[in-house]
Design a protein around this nucleic acid. Structure first.
Length: 234
DNA sequence: AGCGGCTCGCAAGTTACTTCA
DNA sequence: GGTGAAGTAACTTGCGAGCCG
């Protein structure tokens, strides 16, 4: 059964006009259930819509272009480059379906939508309010933006990921600066310690015979005056 | 109450496409 | 025009939670 599911989600099998696939009628594993969900989110939630895809393959979108490969693929012989660069908010150009409902071209290549500034802005605004989506929210946004709910969902997932990445990066920068600062401080203190030890050694030359060697850790710097405290010769 | 199957949402990681220097 | 890097839409996989029989 899983094989059938797989086949139904490839452009090739659709192009061959396999019998229509009814997502709700099959007993599936968790994985295929997920695919079913993805298909539903992409707008394929009715068997008749699967049939529509097959029909969509039955014409030649750009008949003036000779086929270069065995398979009839709209992606390969697709719209003129001028059209292709237009911002597309749906999967059709001049009413001709150019991609599968899963967002990929019929030749199997992935079709990538570029969100407009307005779309991005609205999604950003929504993200600022809530980082996660409710079903209703998702549908509302999708309607507003003329996107599929699945696309809104994906955008939020990616946005959360980007947000987390930036947070990690800024945290890394903060810790790096902290580390640099502490390193500098450590170097400064080591220099001071070295100087103080030198001073102690010079002073202790005269007392060497009278005062036993002190543990450097036993003496410490007075934070207010900077002098050595705790030593017997301060 | 406990169990198994299913669905759903999410995070993490990856792929592939677009844009820009 | 070609190319590599960066950005990002879309995808895959795995996991946990909730629901239901």
């Amino acid at each position: 059964m899983a094989d059938v599911d797989e086949a139904c989600f490839t452009g090739l099998s659709l192009g061959l006009g396999l019998e229509s696939y009814c997502p709700g009628n099959t007993t599936t594993t968790t994985t295929t259930g997920r695919k079913r969900k993805a298909a539903r989110d992409s707008g394929i939630n009715r068997p008749d819509e699967m049939c529509m895809m097959t029909l969509g393959l039955s014409f030649t979108p750009f008949p003036e272009v000779e086929e270069e490969e065995d398979s009839m693929t709209v992606g390969v012989h697709g719209p003129p480059s001028g059209l292709k660069s237009l911002p597309e908010t749906c999967n059709s150009i001049n009413g001709i379906t150019t991609s599968n409902n899963d967002g990929s071209n019929l030749d199997g290549s992935r079709k990538k939508l570029r969100l407009s500034k307005d779309q991005s802005a609205l999604l950003e605004d929504s993200f600022k309010i809530h980082r996660t989506l409710t079903q209703a929210n998702k549908q509302t946004l999708a309607d507003k933006l003329n996107l599929k709910p699945r696309q809104v969902e994906v955008w939020f997932q990616n946005r959360r990921a980007r947000s987390k990445l930036k947070q990690i990066e800024s945290e890394f920068e903060r810790l790096k600066k902290n580390c640099e600062s502490l390193t500098q401080r450590n170097q400064r203190l080591e220099r001071e310690l070295y100087e103080l030890r030198s001073m102690r050694d010079q002073r202790s030359v005269g007392y060497a015979s009278r005062i036993p060697d002190q543990d450097p850790a036993a003496s410490s710097l007075c934070p207010s005056c900077g002098k050595i405290t705790g030593g017997s010769y301060s």
